[in-house]
Nucleic acid binder design. Structure first.
Lengths: 328, 328
DNA sequence: ACTAGCACTACTATTCTACGAGTGCTAATT
DNA sequence: AATTAGCACTCGTAGAATAGTAGTGCTAGT
C-alpha cells in the first residue's frame, strides 16, 4: 500500500513525463512538494521497489513502468472535464443531422485523432451479427456484372464478377432464389446455406450452375468479417517513442492486422477500459483506450491507440463524450 | 555528346548504385573496364561537368544525378526480359478467370509491390467519364436508408443517409425520377442536373422536398472523383533513402494527397513513361513509372513509385507485362 | 591518350575529456 | 523517527583529438 506522499509523487512523475518524455528527477518533484530532494529520492526508491517506477540507467531520473501507469489510471488520475475547445470541435460534427451515424463516428474520430495526435479505431459489428437483407445484381457489360450485398445493419459490399456463357436470366433466377430463401441469415452462414439450399436447386434448372454457384460463393466468403476503420495511423510518426523506422514499421504492421485489432473488443465490457502496454495484446509500447457503443442496431467499439505515455485523462473524457453522444 | 566509354561508365555507375546505395569510386569501375582508375576519374569528371554525375562531398565517389538517371533510362538501359520467377507469380493472378478486371489489377499490383518493395498505384477512370447507370435505395430502418450509385463502368458507391419525416413513397418517387431522367449523365454533372431537372418537379409533388433534394445532392457531390488505389505505401519504410521519420512523413503525406497523385496521369501518353525526381511532380526524391491501360470500357493508369534509385529495367518490363495482360 | 604516383580531402570510427543531472548513502538535524 | 544536507559516484551527452581509409584532382612520365 502506498502512502499519501508516494501517491502524490507518482502522480507528479506520471503527469510530468506525459507532458515531456524525459526521465523525472527528485529535484523537480521537490519543488512542487514541500520537502527536500533527498526525501523524494527515498520515496522514489520505495516506488521503484514496488515496481511502479523505472530507471533508464543507474543514475537517471525515474520513468513510470507499465504498473506505474496502471496505478495512475486506477487510483490517481482525476476525471477531467473536456476542454471547451475540444468539445466545440466535436460538436460541429455531431450536430450535422444529415450524416448517418456511422459517418458521424468516423468523422469525429478523425477530429479526435487530429486534436490528440493519437490513432483511432472503429470496429463495426461482426458479420455473425449482420443478417443478409438483400442482394442486387447490376449487369455492366457482356459477361460482367456487379453483385451488391446489403445487410440489415446497413453494411454494404459490392463485387465485380465475370461469368462466361451465363445468361442474365439465369443470374436473375439465382438472385431471386437467394433473396427468397437466404435473406435473414447471418452473413457468415450464408456460404454454407448457399451450398445446401441453393446449389441443389440451380443444379437442376440452370446451365453453367457450377460457375454461377462459385461466383456467389466467393462474393459471400470474401465479405469482410468486420468493418474496421483505422484513422490517423500516421500520427505515430509524431510520437517521440516511435522515432525510428523500425518501430514505425512494427506498429504499422500491427495496426494493419485485422485479427490483432479484433482483440480490442475481446472483452465485452461496456465501460471505458484502459489497456496499457502488454495488456493491450497489440504491442507492448502502446496503450489502447476503448469503449463499446450501441445505438439502435448500430453497435461496435471505439478505441484510441497511442504511446503508453498518453494523456489518459483527456482521452478518457473524450471517449466518454463520444459514447454519450453516439448513444442518443 | 558522350563518348562510348563515358556511356559505359555512366551505365556501370547507375547500375552499381541501384544495387547498393553507396557512392561509386573510380577503382570499382576500372575493374570491369579495362583501363586504369585514373582514366576513369578523368571520364567521371567529364560526366560530372555534363551534369550526369554528382559527388556527395569533395572526395567521395560519384552518384547519378537526376539527369544521369534520365540519360540512363533514355539511352543506356537495356530492355530486360522479365525473370521467370517474377512472371510466374503474376501469371497465377492473371489466370484467375473468376475475378473482374479491376480486382485482377489490384491483386497483381499487390504482388508487384511485394516483389519489388516499391509502392504501386492504380488510377481509375475519372468521374466525367463515368455515366450514371442506376441508383438504388434500400431502407434500413426508421428514417435511415442506403443509397447506392452505379456507373456504366462498374464503379459503385454507397452512402448511408438519414431523413426525418420523409415517406418511403416519396423517396421511391424521387429515385424513379432520377433513374428516368438523369441516367446516362456524366457523374460530375449529375448534381447540376439534379438541381435544374429534379428539384422543380419534386418541389411540387413531394413533401419535405428540400431535405430529400439535399440528401441526394450530397450523395452525388461526395462521389469520389476518381478511384485511387495506393498499394504498399509502407514499402517506403524499406528504402534506405527514406530512413528518417521526417522523410517518411513527407512522402506519406504526398501519397495520401489525391490531387498530387492525379498529376501522374496528366499527360495522356499511352506508352510507358518514366518521371524521375522533380519530373514526377510528386516529390523530388521519388521516381514514377506509369502507363495507361484500356480494356473495353475499363481504363486508367498504372504507376509504380519508388526512390530515384529504382530498378528501372525490371519495373519497366513488369509494367509492360501488366499492360499487355490487361489489354486482352 | 593513357596511367602511375602523390598530395590532399572529407567521412568514419574510436578515444578522451569535461560536464551535468541524477543517484544512493551517511551523518547530522529537527 | 522522519527529514535533510552533503558528498562520492554513475552514466549519458557533447565536443575535440586522433587515426584510418576511400576516394579525389593533378602532374609528370610512358
Amino acid at each position: 500500500m502506498l502512502t499519501d506522499r508516494q501517491c502524490k509523487i507518482l502522480k507528479l512523475i506520471v503527469e510530468k513525463y506525459i507532458k515531456d518524455p524525459v526521465p523525472v528527477g527528485s529535484k523537480t518533484i521537490s519543488k512542487t512538494l514541500k520537502c527536500s530532494s533527498a526525501t523524494v529520492r527515498n520515496e522514489m526508491m520505495a516506488l521503484e521497489e514496488s515496481g511502479l517506477l523505472e530507471k533508464t540507467h543507474t543514475s537517471s531520473g525515474r520513468v513510470p513502468s507499465e504498473e506505474g501507469y496502471r496505478y495512475y489510471v486506477d487510483h490517481l488520475m482525476e476525471p477531467k472535464k473536456m476542454s471547451g475547445e475540444d468539445m466545440l470541435k466535436l460538436q460541429t460534427v455531431f450536430h450535422n443531422q444529415q450524416l448517418a451515424l456511422s459517418d458521424v463516428i468516423v468523422k469525429s474520430l478523425q477530429v479526435i485523432s487530429d486534436m490528440t495526435n493519437y490513432t483511432t479505431v472503429v470496429l463495426g459489428s461482426t458479420s455473425h451479427e449482420n443478417l443478409l437483407k438483400q442482394i442486387e445484381v447490376v449487369p455492366i457489360d457482356e459477361g460482367s456484372m456487379i453483385v451488391i450485398v446489403i445487410t440489415d445493419r446497413g453494411h454494404v459490399e459490392h463485387k465485380n464478377i465475370r461469368l462466361q456463357d451465363v445468361s442474365m436470366d439465369d443470374v436473375k433466377k439465382t438472385v431471386n432464389l437467394i433473396n427468397n430463401l437466404i435473406v435473414g441469415t447471418p452473413i457468415d452462414e450464408v456460404s454454407t446455406k448457399l451450398e445446401y439450399e441453393i446449389k441443389p436447386i440451380i443444379g437442376k434448372y440452370v446451365k453453367q450452375h457450377e460457375q454461377l454457384y462459385n461466383a456467389f460463393y466467393h462474393v459471400f466468403s470474401d465479405f469482410t468479417n468486420q468493418e474496421i476503420n483505422v484513422v490517423g495511423k500516421n500520427k505515430f510518426l509524431k510520437q517521440p517513442e516511435f522515432s525510428t523506422v523500425d518501430k514505425i514499421q512494427n506498429v504499422f504492421n500491427k495496426l494493419e492486422n485485422p485479427e490483432l485489432l479484433h482483440k480490442i473488443e475481446e472483452d465485452d465490457d461496456n465501460n471505458i477500459k484502459v489497456y496499457i502496454g502488454s495488456e493491450s495484446k497489440i504491442d507492448d509500447d502502446v496503450t489502447v483506450i476503448k469503449t463499446r457503443f450501441k445505438n439502435g442496431n448500430t453497435e461496435g467499439t471505439l478505441a484510441i491507440i497511442g504511446p503508453k505515455r498518453m494523456e489518459y485523462d483527456r482521452v478518457v473524457s473524450m471517449l466518454e463524450y463520444m459514447k454519450e453522444n453516439i448513444e442518443r
